[in-house]
């Protein structure tokens, strides 16, 4: 059966980047305004899901040739690594550090190790969601 997805496919190409950009924004903004690793990760997976609906699984796998299970592992490593990093400074596991760096032209930059931890959460969420969707979708 051949279906005509032209409208969906065209719209997806546009919306996809908007969603991905928004998810990245929401991931970084999460420390101050609603958002964070969970929502960011879910939104990114939502964007990929949209891509899957508009095109087919094979094509998406060609565009994004990730092994999502590795992404889960990487995310877990980030989260545990950030936590374990605190041990090096003789502070309890998962103690975070933060500080400000003054950059020329760009101005103040606020840095926080919690972002690294949140990045781990982000990666795990994207990895898990995409593993689930890909394996179910790829069945048969």
């Amino acid at each position: 059966m051949k279906t005509n997805d032209l409208i969906l496919q065209t719209a997806t190409k546009l919306i996809l980047f908007l969603i991905v950009l928004f998810s990245i924004y929401i991931f970084f903004a999460g420390h101050y305004t609603p958002g964070g690793g969970f929502v960011g990760g879910l939104l990114t997976s939502g964007a990929i899901l949209l891509l899957l609906l508009a095109f087919d699984l094979k094509m998406v796998q060609n565009i994004l040739p990730f092994n999502y299970l590795y992404m889960v592992a990487l995310g877990l490593l980030f989260a545990i690594g950030t936590g374990a990093g605190a041990l090096l400074f003789n502070t309890p596991f998962l103690t975070h550090a933060f500080g400000d760096i003054h950059l020329p032209v760009l101005g103040e930059l606020h840095l926080h190790t919690a972002t690294l931890f949140d990045l781990g959460v982000y990666l795990v969420v994207v990895g898990v969601t995409m593993t689930i969707i890909q394996t179910i979708g790829g069945d048969e």
């Binding site: 969970f38 969420v125 898990v128 689930i132 394996t135 179910i136």
Partner: peptide, 13 residues
Amino acid sequence: IVIAFGVTALFLV
């Protein structure tokens, strides 16, 4: 919420 999602997905499969 996130855990429930994981559990639902596993049950579904």
